[in-house]
């Protein structure tokens, strides 16, 4: 019991906060909206963490996958489908696309994979602009209908934020379970040395593709819910800068830890709203943050703190270390 409580205590606190915030701000739609967007960002950052933190690949097509799901969901809803069914189909479709986009990860590493993902993201964005009859091109789609509720009526206001909170909490719990399972340990082994992992009998290809599928599921569920929540989407809603911002949340908070990306998203997602009066300098601030993370905080806030704590313990006979890493 004791072990159980301490293990899930952070999750309980997070769940409490996630459900409390929409209620606290239910009187003020503007603040409540910031809370909703932050929750979505936590969900996205948690999904990207599975890739960036646990497989060691930096994928810049994350927003594109969210966008595919959003457009498919909008299209199917407009064709008369129930939103929830449309979301299910859209998310799974987009996640299957995510697996396909993960195929390059079997051949490419590091910068080459990231560049490849950037190219894929650019192709997706161009496609959103190009296929006007599906996406309404650069103009975008506005007046997206809200999801309907089973008892009649629509999901709106605080109840929408509570649904987002529920999904986000589920997302964080799922990531925790995955990471602590054999699947998570296999991913970590692959991240550290994929050749050695394969030699030890791990099916690297299957694990990587599974990671892409699951992470894409996070992206696409978020994307499907994002569209009606904001009420407007355009290719810009899912472009490379969005991918980069999600990446920044993960890197800033600390990749490869459960709570790092959550912290990163909670700090960074409200930033554009707070900077609204200084709208002009938003890009500059983001640019400085990116550089700051790379130069000063390569392990992120939480990761950096963990490393410091670990450095406090005396490392046994470090001086004897003679072995080259590889």
């Amino acid at each position: 019991m004791n072990v159980l409580t301490s293990r899930w205590l952070p999750h309980a606190i997070f769940a409490f906060a996630a459900f409390a915030m929409p209620l606290v701000f239910s009187g003020n739609r503007y603040f409540a909206f910031i809370v909703g967007i932050t929750l979505l960002s936590v969900l996205w950052a948690t999904g990207m963490n599975l890739l960036y933190g646990y497989t060691g690949l930096m994928p810049l097509m994350f927003a594109g996958i969210a966008g595919i799901s959003a457009y498919v969901t909008i299209g199917l809803s407009a064709a008369g489908w129930s939103f929830w069914l449309a979301m299910l189909v859209g998310s799974i479709a987009a996640s299957l696309v995510g697996i396909v986009l993960g195929l390059p990860s079997l051949r490419l590493r590091g910068f080459y994979f990231t560049l490849c993902s950037l190219v894929i993201q650019s192709v997706i964005t161009l496609a959103f602009v190009y296929f006007v009859n599906l996406t309404n091109g650069d103009v975008g789609i506005s007046h997206i209908p809200l999801p309907e509720l089973p008892g009649g009526g629509q999901l709106t206001g605080t109840s929408y934020e509570l649904v987002l909170a529920a999904l986000t909490v589920i997302g964080v719990v799922v990531l925790t379970l995955l990471v602590e399972s054999g699947f998570g340990h296999r991913l970590i082994a692959i991240r550290e040395d994929d050749g050695l992992a394969e030699t030890l009998g791990i099916n690297v290809t299957r694990q990587r593709l599974a990671a892409f599928f699951i992470a894409s599921l996070f992206a696409s569920i978020g994307g499907a819910l994002y569209a009606p929540y904001v009420g407007f989407v355009s290719p810009r809603s899912f472009d490379v800068l969005v991918s980069l911002n999600i990446w920044l949340m993960v890197a800033f908070g600390g990749r490869g830890t459960i709570w790092g990306p959550v912290v990163g998203a909670v700090i960074l997602a409200p930033l554009p709203f707070l900077l609204q009066d200084y709208y002009m300098i938003k890009d500059v601030v983001y640019g400085l943050l990116i550089i700051g993370v790379i130069v000063l905080l390569p392990a992120g806030i939480v990761g950096g703190w963990k490393r410091k704590a670990a450095a406090g313990e005396p490392a046994p006979d470090v001086a004897q270390k003679t072995a080259p890493a590889r």
Binding site: T114, L115, L241, L244, Y286, G287, L288, L289, I290, I294
Partner: peptide, 10 residues
């Protein structure tokens, strides 16, 4: 690469 994306943003 990431650094240069930051410079790009700025």
């Amino acid at each position: 690469f990431v650094l240069s994306l930051g410079i790009t943003q700025i």
